[in-house]
Design a protein around this nucleic acid. Sequence first.
DNA 1: ACTGCTATTGAAAGACATTACCATTAAGGA
DNA 2: TCCTTAATGGTAATGTCTTTCAATAGCAGT
Lengths: 161, 161
Amino acid sequence: MSELESGLAASGRRLTRARRTVLRVLSDASVPLSPREITAVGRQHYGHLGLVTVYRTLELLELMHWVRRVHGADGCHGYMLCGRALSPTLVCRLCGRVAEFPGGQPLRSLIDRVQADTGFRVDDPLVQLSGLCPACQGASGADEADEAAHRENGSAESIHT
Amino acid sequence: MSELESGLAASGRRLTRARRTVLRVLSDASVPLSPREITAVGRQHYGHLGLVTVYRTLELLELMHWVRRVHGADGCHGYMLCGRALSPTLVCRLCGRVAEFPGGQPLRSLIDRVQADTGFRVDDPLVQLSGLCPACQGASGADEADEAAHRENGSAESIHT
DNA sequence: ACTGCTATTGAAAGACATTACCATTAAGGA
DNA sequence: TCCTTAATGGTAATGTCTTTCAATAGCAGT
């Protein structure tokens, strides 16, 4: 996180208490947080943190690729810190935890393949694989049934939020 | 589209004029449309079409995988008809056109690789590759400069909406 | 074609997320 | 420390999406 702070300062931006607080909240979080949640948690550290500032800070951090937006099942956006590497994001739809798939190679080769075949130039790959993490695959009887009730047929439910 | 209609009816749903209209609007569109746009265009065919019904219809069609949600640069969601196959979506951030990469194999193998390596079970892969289509790569001088102004440094701008 | 059941509709109101505005504050260089 | 100006944060405005519920219209059975 210190690295994040210095990187922010290095890009000519001011390192304010609000931004420090947002970074701290995100680095402490184990699941993606909404702007409202970030504000609420951040106020435990810095009571005057404003919701608008959180929105602006997230916009800035996303632009600088310090933060990644995650599309939740309920349509709300969550934000999490991310590495600079090109990597697919894994989202568990039960526990909400997010992981980045460490190997960038398979995604890199998929993009290369697409670019070579179509002539398209890919700037911003959004690759978010939703499903069940290993821990939730077994211990999810009730939730699984609930999920199944939302499904229309045998195929997997699509959320794409 | 006739196939879409019969598929809708076959799943035990009623084939209403509102749903027919939404399907028609989407099949005529060349870029993803927002619920509001779909309603506006749909009213040219069916004057009483309601915004709420469009939302509900899109939810249904997305659940049935007739429709795919696309994440636009401006944060608005767009909807488009899609094939049933597993395929990455290509979105041009200048002209807005969307294409599905026909070969599902590279994506399939990426997902298999991720699942094998992590134990994660992927239900709902959201793979949307934003960038520039071949037509927009050359003829975009002004727009390119405008895009560049939104960038922070040399790396590509991230949108992830 | 007629009838009845019920899924579906759509207008209005509400809940909620996001943005615009602007006077005030504070980060960081001189 | 002082000064410049980026940044803040409260409020209001905007816009999107959801909820509610009486009215409508598919469609199966007659």
